[in-house]
Write a protein that binds this DNA or RNA. Structure first.
Lengths: 214, 214, 214, 214
DNA sequence: GATGAATGAGGGTTCATTCAT
DNA sequence: TATGAATGAACCCTCATTCAT
């Protein structure tokens, strides 16, 4: 138990990270204590700090690794999809957005934390390293799109995914205006109702149409 | 003197709120202490609590009142603009978005706080009351658009403004990916660069085009 | 209770400081917790931090203020003593040393903490301010000696008090070599025995003789 | 290989001890972690604890063994010096003090830790054993002086070395009063300036003169 | 109404020490 | 014997909130 392989170490780190992720699905960053993460991971508080230097590092890790995985998966799917028309691409991207919102909502929530909260105390080196890896994957993805659709330049392809997250992230922020703490506000506020999924997809759809041409 | 008129009371409340707003332009919610707000308002800490039951109430107030004012102003401008074509409307809305981003960025930042942070401790009653007032203004604005452009139904008009804020709010979250704590990350990360203003306007432009028809 | 005069505030600060001093008579810096200081002062933990920004500030305060008082008292006594011969001066200084050791041992112990421990986290500004005040008093004392004994220049007079503390401080460090945690070590270790008081006085006596001439 | 000879064991213990000594030259006890000692020794953390029961034991060991070596060396030098007059003795002792301060400052710093910090958690048995060995060497040294200078009794000879360390130790504590965290305090504080070496030697010189007679 | 002193729960983090391998 | 992962007690400190005046 005392000498761990790199793999075993990664597993424990992943255990802690996944616990934090689960908790972040239900609570906000400031309502999640290291103590609670440790307990729910069945690990001592000190152990958490053996794997992450600060609390912020845990969540920065979730953000960076989570997005890397998401974009890698997207790249894979794209490669297998063998799209030929921009309509197919649009359709693919909308499905991809659905996946992002339905299965990776925490990523989108983490975006809001990154600048104002996480960067302040996350390790500069690790963050930059992770950010660069992420940039690479992002570029690969964009490059692949450009290769498949030469009319879409790499820069534009990159932006597509940034806007994708932006839209979803923004709609989370504007959701639930017709309720307070999950409880519906009495009276009619129907026009404040937002469906994160539907509205994201509609907005992104319009964006893609505008960007890629009718 | 120790019995204040309703007006005097409102003035002091406004003073505190404005101070908090100024501070929120420069710092994040969790980096702004009640103490600091009190000091910068030249008021005692206890006085702050005489006007706002909790810290979260202050910022919920800023959000609600700020948006009310913004939408009222928008309504005014709209009434004076006497638009006739949807192109003019689009143009108006884009200019309005520019105003929102350039002069009311705090509103957009506050959106990200609302659900996860503010609602937890903000007064339910006051929030609901404010939310209803806001809804009313929002509806008036939407109604006016509908009246001017019967093809745009009220629900759609409402949504326009929600998407407007969503897009800007989301782009804030995705900005500065090419730097860490304001310092640029060495190496090329150009494709991560985001211009909150330009990209918001472009995205909103495409959205409006899609929504309102070519 | 809510608006304290400067005087009342100083009293509470003094209360906390004195509690810390008492505890420092019995325990080492690292064995004294803020919690314990608060409890023994019948005050909440937070209150301690209302009066001292850091734990180190408390003890730096004790050191600076303690020495200021000691030197002021020494100056007073000196003024009243109206010494005329250097033998009288020597005698006075030895009695003064006795007082320092018997009634202000904590000051001497605090000297050992200052550089390596306190300066790291004590407020730079407050410390420098206190240090300057102390320097002033020290200079006054030295000046008075010089005025009374023109053959002793001010620099030399200053050094007298620095050596006085050094000797006492050093002898504390070398004391109790014949015991371990207060319990005597079995067997004869008589030649390791040190009397802080007697040996300080003897050493200081020899020092003064050497310095001031036979 | 996993059964080490006594000599091999001592070598590893010495390696760890020497590393700790080096680190203590640059940092304070509380700023040196077992982790850091282990790393700089190229040894695992657990290994450190195989050789020293507690952190305090390491430094107590440094103190005891360091002084033993210093006094043995002093004894050797004394035996070779073949002094005949007390003036020569004084001169020898001052040179010896210079050596202590210039090459063994850590010993003097360790004195300040011994009572308040180390004894609390150092092994009683090992400390007492080391202290007795030290006492023996100390006595030999004193005895040799007495044999060479019958007018100096053994007790007095012993005390000479205790005062030697006391003076140096005390002056360390009172040094750097004219700076804060290595940075000079602005303004004139010349009379607070201390030269550990010069002032130790002067003080010790006067002490010896007083003790041994003019 | 205004004040600001007092509160204390709660936070993140450190680090000597243990012990299974 | 060597290892280093796991532990968890203990620490200092923050800050929204209360309430006596």
């Amino acid at each position: 138990m005392n000498i761990k392989t790199a793999d075993e170490k990664q597993q424990k780190q992943a255990l802690i990270a996944e616990t934090a992720l689960k908790m972040f699905e239900e609570n906000d960053f400031y309502d999640i204590s290291i103590n609670a993460i440790a307990q729910r991971s069945h690990v001592a508080k000190g152990t958490v700090f053996n794997y992450f230097k600060t609390k912020e590092n845990i969540f920065m890790h979730l953000l960076l690794v989570g997005y890397q995985e998401f974009f890698l998966q997207t790249l894979n799917q794209l490669q297998q999809a063998k799209l030929t028309t921009t309509d197919e691409l649009k359709s693919f991207l909308l499905t991809n957005t659905k996946d992002l919102i339905e299965n990776h909502l925490t990523l989108i929530k983490l975006n809001a934390l990154r600048g104002p909260v996480l960067e302040g105390k996350a390790s500069r080196e690790e963050t930059i390293e992770g950010r660069k890896k992420l940039y690479e994957v992002h570029e690969q993805l964009a490059q692949f799109i450009h290769d498949s659709f030469p009319s879409i330049d790499v820069k534009t392809a990159n932006k597509i995914f940034i806007i994708q997250s932006s839209i979803a992230s923004g709609l989370i922020n504007l959701s639930n205006l017709d309720s307070f703490n999950q409880e519906p506000i009495p009276g009619n506020m129907d026009d404040f109702k937002v469906s994160i999924l539907n509205d994201s997809m509609e907005t992104f759809d319009f964006y893609l149409t505008g960007l890629l041409g009718k």
